[in-house]
Design a protein around this nucleic acid. Sequence first.
DNA 1: CTGAAAGCGCTTACAG
DNA 2: CTGAAAGCGCTTACAG
Lengths: 354, 354
Amino acid sequence: MDDRTGLRIVPDTARPPVNRYGNRPTMKDVAARAGVGLKTVSRVVNGEPGVTPDTERRVQEAIDALGFRRNDSARVLRKGRTASIGLVLEDLADPFYGPLSRAVEEVARSHGALLINGSSAEDPDREQELVLALCARRVDGLVVIPAGDDHRYLEPELRAGVATVFVDRPAGRIDADVVLSDSFGGARDGVAHLIAHGHRRVGFIGDMPRIHTAAERLRGYRAAMEQAGIPVEDSWMSLGVTDPERVRRAAEEMLSGPDPVTAIFAGNNRVTVTVVRVLARHSRPVALVGFDDFELADLLRPGVTVVAQDAAALGRTAADRLFRQLDGTLLAPERVQLPTRLITRGSGELPPAV
Amino acid sequence: MDDRTGLRIVPDTARPPVNRYGNRPTMKDVAARAGVGLKTVSRVVNGEPGVTPDTERRVQEAIDALGFRRNDSARVLRKGRTASIGLVLEDLADPFYGPLSRAVEEVARSHGALLINGSSAEDPDREQELVLALCARRVDGLVVIPAGDDHRYLEPELRAGVATVFVDRPAGRIDADVVLSDSFGGARDGVAHLIAHGHRRVGFIGDMPRIHTAAERLRGYRAAMEQAGIPVEDSWMSLGVTDPERVRRAAEEMLSGPDPVTAIFAGNNRVTVTVVRVLARHSRPVALVGFDDFELADLLRPGVTVVAQDAAALGRTAADRLFRQLDGTLLAPERVQLPTRLITRGSGELPPAV
DNA sequence: CTGAAAGCGCTTACAG
DNA sequence: CTGAAAGCGCTTACAG
């Protein structure tokens, strides 16, 4: 009681529960009310055969009257499969992961599984914490966009049979299924596209080099430049966190000085967007190709030429493989690589400005 | 055996498991190996006091050797709280829900809870199926962006103590917590802004009228028009699904004929983007204000004036209320309304073209 | 067609 | 400091 008002401050549901979960009725309660055995209730709830219509009706009435809903958490304990899979990604708020998550969800749904989701925030410790929490919940499988580069902590889990597929970046120091876009080839082609339009001084702005995709895209950049016989200067490359501040500075540096770059290859969608902002205020036109497509890229002036990857296909492929692991139709871990696609919209076809 | 290759097709983990979950060791296994009782293992695993350093070391060794990880699924059954909350939204792939999900996740994380996620795809049946599946898993609470308008199916769950907060749209036919943006006020202000810039023939393109936010925004549109003494013609309003095809046709119709609209108010981010595409090819300049901010709105020419809502704040507020329900510090269900903000960028300040 | 007993892997409440 | 017994809400394996 609150002394001043005389009102109970504790809401109804907080009174010492007789059973837990609020006071949810259990099969036992239903059985008692219907005057049948526990197993008969179980049969009705699960639609198993061998119950007379009359018994079934009595049980159903008790279920409705009590508001019974089967506790899947208990069911899971007995059955051994939780019908849930974990999805660990970098940031739920990043638009790149939206279609990927959605694709994983659709596949999970088609297999009757729920999706438990979490963001690593690009922090390897947080990734590990999240993955192990999911394993403790005994998810049947795990789709992981890794933040870290050492996944040996997963070994006991893999041995215990947790299906696992890595997406977008490979696992580190363990042998696991992985589904990737062709970062190397995509970046190489994008840079070659700029070179084909007459550029020689091409800049590269990418994510932290410890991130596999970032390293691969840089490698693609170097390959294209080498193929064209263009020696790369250190000042043309900038790798690091992709927050707008750093990227803006990196772009501005490349674009100033006596020998500025005439074109930029942006290593991912966040970088591209920031570079577009910088170029909007820049005096000379600068060519731009970005890795990852993004909404409205076609509406900007000029439209932004991109190396597109299919995020939904990544998610779908990964989830498919996960469920194939679970039904035992998948043998050894594999690396599946999905192609990228160059979409020309104008920004990548600008000639070098002098 | 595969007859042709002689290889076993069934992988190791698929052999009849002695225990389930693969062959995961349990506390019992650890206890046996360490030569202690079950409860002692439990103490060590949970960091409870009252274990000698020597015993603890023996138990820890057994844990490491066996690769034991506590089965939280069993733990949850005994403890009564699952430390997980469900988030049901319309579409994981919609950029509007990214920051909202992320905010809910952060709050959940700060309370040690995991997030189970699902998309209703704007289908009331699918929403219900998902919500009830989450209840069957005994999530502690539910954050729901409703697709349907009748949530009486949740009554037994609410009575059983499942904490529930609706976001973005109110619950239908039940009394529940809800966190909303001020759709009515935001739309009214956005339309008034267009009127203040000289427009009288203002079009409105929105989502299906059964969706609360769509109805409220239409109401705001009507209020602003009425306030300005402008009689609204039916042909100026179009409500329906927000797929690009329909929106494009709706916009084109309003913009053609003898008395075309000179400005459009777009009811949400998807509509806005499609309208921008239509206007890009249109002969005369048309003013535009959109509900919801979106990335790159400032980079388009003209920049797109929007009524912005704070998706992250919606998620954070909802999740906060959820956990306050769970610790009993929240009394009656409330409707919390968050303000919107008009961001002028050019498209909404264009004068009427004749 | 029906149900009592045992058990899933933990925690709780208690006793030594 | 330590552990045996009972129980969470189901399903499994059996017996009637």
